[in-house]
Amino acid sequence: MSGPFKGVGLASPLLLVLLGLFLAPVLLMLPQSLHEYIPGTGTSEAWTLQNYTRLLTDDYYREIIGRTLWMGSLVTFLCFLLGYPLAYFMARTTPAWRAAATLLVIFPLFLNLVVRSFGWITLLANRGVVNNLLMDIGLIDSPIKMLFNMTGLVIGLTHIYLPFMVLMLLTAIQNVPRDVEQAAATLAASKLRIFFTITLPLTAPGILAGSILVFVLTISALVTPRLLGGPAYKVMATLIYDEFMQKLDWPSGTSFAFILTAITLLIIWGAGRVARKWSGGLA
C-alpha cells in the first residue's frame, strides 16, 4: 500500500462495515423491484422495468409523489420559519434561558410518536378541541377539516420535526462570530440588514443541514402520515407500506422505495448546490 491508496487501505475495515450494513441490504432489494407481481400467483420470473415506469406515468402515483414533496417542502419551510427565531433567541440569550429553552425544545422528543400523533387527532378532529373552541366562540359555523388532509399532516409533522431544525440552527447561529456582525454594524448596517446579509448567510450550513434532515425525515415518515392522513390521504411512505403490507405487491413497493430514495438524493444534492452558491462556498 502506498500513494493515494494508503488512506483507502486504512479506512477499508470501516468502509466494509458501512457497505455491509447499509448498502448491501438495499442493493439486495434491487432485483426484487425488477419483476412483475401477479396477484394470486406471486412474483414472476421475467425481468421488467414496469414497476418504475408505472409510478412515473400513472397520475395517481404522480399525485402522491407530488404531495409527498410538497408536504416535505412545507414542513421544512415551516420548521425553518418557526425554528430560526427560536434558535436565534436561544443562541443569544443568557445561559440560564438557553438551558430552559433547550429543555422545552427537546422535551417532546421524549414522548412516543404515536402518542403525539394521537394528541393532534384529539386537537384537530372535526369534533376536536380546536374546532369546538372555534365554534364555541362563534368564529366558524361548521368544523374546519384539518385531519386526513395536508393541513393535519403539515401541522403534525412540523411539530414533530421542529426540535431537529432548532438544534441544528442553534449550533449554526452560535458559530457566527459576533465580531463579524459588529464589523457590519460599524460599517453602518442596520440590525435588520446585518441579519439578512451577514447572520443568515453565515448560518447557511446549519440551515442546509437542518432542512435536509427535516425534509428527509418528513418524506420518509410513516406513523404520523398514517394516523393524521388516514387510509386515503397517502404519501410515498404510506404508499410503500401499503404495497408491501396490504397488496403484498413487494416488487412495486421496492421500486417505489428506490424512487423515493433517488428523489431524496437528488434534492439533497440540489439543495447543497444552492446553499453553496448563496453562502459564498461556506456550506
Partner: peptide, 14 residues
C-alpha cells in the same frame, strides 16, 4: 379474490 383484490384496491384508492 386473491387475484383481483390488488386491482380492486387500486381502483378504490383512485
Amino acid at each position: 379474490t386473491s387475484a383481483q383484490l390488488p386491482g380492486w384496491i387500486d381502483r378504490w384508492q383512485r
